[in-house]
Design a protein around this nucleic acid. Structure first.
Lengths: 237, 237
DNA sequence: CGCCTGGTTGATTTCATTCAAAAACGGTGG
DNA sequence: CCACCGTTTTTGAATGAAATCAACCAGGCG
């Protein structure tokens, strides 16, 4: 599973779309261009002409908005399967910026061609609408988080969410979560400061709930406590 | 423009969809059922089977999530043209609840029929995807607001947004904003408490920026000041 | 008239931010 | 291999903004 450029014939399991039948995958692959972005580099910029849209194949992308005063809100960390740069309506520019958190492989689809596929291929359409509905649901969950939750609730929720995302493959929950993003990224994602994130994580460590591992991973020692801290959230994003 | 039940032959200007050609409107109308909900009553409940989805024709709907501990986050106030109860994916239940803020007229579409129209009628599909993209963009803007902004920034932004929405029809900005929602609704929307909303509004009044009018309207006396308070936000939602 | 809901105002507390500085980390080049 | 640098993380103390707790006021309605 190399990180370098792949062939355009990639099938359903390359993560370019969550659920995708053969035809849809082929048609998408046919109009797509594969590109890679090194960790930390920009993927797209708010305000740039939206000539194409992307899906994440490998790696993690952060999507964010900048305020003129320099503050930044990361609106999401996108994993393989997510779409990026979707701007239908009259808009012809991207509504947000995106950076590569890790080294990233993307598929780029020319906007016109993609829209044509939406019309022609039911499988593409369904997958795309489902992906958007997912993102919308997730956005609403995160509004709840940002509006009404304490720092430890936010961080506990974040860790459990990441753990859940990584568990996806196998099924059983993982006890070690790989966290490639920096503290300030997490802070901007959760609406906190880097200091508060650090402090809160320190508290978790002191309580024996988590354990900092080598290389940006942290081990979950007491999932129950973490879930209790995450608080009364019906569903973990 | 009566608020009571309308005929199913309603055309393109009834607000059931933003931009819609004749065929799409007709096909949608054909599968839809019109219903009205009095102010303050529930429209749908989180967790209920998602057998149909809705579009708002007239009035305002609040969409919200409840936490087990009673806290509530209003994720949006929906105006005519917005969709409600969209749950593709495997999910068969609604992801959120909704109440009628004012008396509301809705169109209900059986989920299966609507999905079929998405496949068959390009106009419906485009309008629907555009509406979702809009909602997503709006959700991201509101994340920014909830995460990083002070109470007065939030409230100023809220007022300007409402003013902008009501200006839509004519074009020139309005100076009187109709605010049918209660203080606690605004608070739950902005991630504040009702007390803070009241206090902040009192400050605005004291400064001569706004003026409380009769019947739940407030007059904007100094739009410039309000925009300055709303702060460095590139685009008002 | 009195009740009930919703809005206002005040006093206090709490929690995250801010400002500041030290410590750890990771890469680079001698 | 180690010293050096810039960056990121950690920790501390002080500040500040909104939440909380609580009381009071105004209007609508039985």
């Amino acid at each position: 599973m190399p990180l370098a450029n792949e062939k355009t014939t990639a099938g359903r399991d390359d993560g370019s779309l969550r659920v995708l039948n053969g035809e849809a995958a082929d048609r998408l692959a046919a109009i797509s261009r594969v590109l890679t972005v090194p960790a930390g580099r920009p993927v797209m910029m708010e305000g740039a002409p939206a000539t194409e849209l992307y899906s994440v194949s490998q790696g993690i992308v952060s999507v964010f908005k900048l305020m003129p005063d320099g503050r930044r809100q990361i609106t999401g960390f996108l994993y393989p399967g997510s779409f990026l740069g979707v701007t239908f309506n009259a808009e012809t520019t991207y509504a947000y910026s995106a950076d590569a958190v890790t080294a990233v492989t993307l598929r780029a689809y020319p906007r016109r061609d993609f829209e044509r596929l939406l019309d022609e291929v039911p499988g593409v359409r369904r997958a795309f609408i489902a992906a958007m509905a997912d993102e919308l649901t997730e956005a609403q969950d995160r509004m709840l988080l940002l509006a009404h939750r304490s720092a430890s609730e936010r961080l506990a929720c974040f860790l459990l969410t990441l753990a859940g995302r990584q568990a996806g493959k196998g099924g059983e929950p993982v006890d070690t979560v790989y966290i490639p993003m920096r503290g300030s990224d997490i802070a901007d994602y959760l609406g906190l400061t880097a200091e508060t994130v650090s402090r809160t994580l320190a508290v978790f460590r002191r309580k024996g709930i988590v354990h900092a591992e080598r290389g940006g991973s942290i081990g979950i020692l007491d999932r129950g406590a973490l879930e209790a801290l995450a608080g009364p959230l019906s569903r973990h994003i």
